[in-house]
C-alpha cells in the first residue's frame, strides 16, 4: 500500500513538473529532449560541485583560519 502511495506521489510530482514547466503541451520526443538537456545540466552542476566545492571550501577554511587563527595566536601570545 505504501509503495503504491509513494508511486502515486512520484507520478503526481512528475505531472506537476510537466505542468509547471509547461512541457506538458510538448510532443513526447520534445519532452525527452528537454528532460535530457535539463538532466545533463543538473548532473554537470552536481558533478562540478562535487569535484570543486571541497577544494574551494578547504582553501577558504585555510584562508580564514590563517586570518583569524593567526591573530588569535598572537593575541594569546601577547597576553601570556
Amino acid at each position: 500500500m505504501d509503495v503504491k502511495n509513494l508511486k502515486d506521489y512520484l507520478h503526481w510530482l512528475y505531472y506537476q513538473y510537466l505542468l509547471i514547466t509547461s512541457i506538458y503541451v510538448l510532443e513526447p520526443w520534445e519532452q525527452t529532449l528537454f528532460n535530457t538537456v535539463l538532466f545533463t545540466m543538473v548532473a554537470m552542476v552536481i558533478y562540478t560541485s562535487y569535484v570543486f566545492v571541497p577544494i574551494h571550501v578547504r582553501l577558504a577554511l585555510k584562508f580564514f583560519s590563517g586570518l583569524c587563527g593567526g591573530q588569535q595566536e598572537s593575541t594569546v601570545a601577547l597576553i601570556s
Partner: peptide
C-alpha cells in the same frame, strides 16, 4: 515566474 518560464520553454521549442 513559472508562467513566463513556461512560455519561454514552449517558445524555444517553437523556434526549434
Amino acid at each position: 515566474v513559472f508562467t513566463y518560464l513556461g512560455f519561454g520553454i514552449v517558445t524555444l521549442f517553437g523556434y526549434l
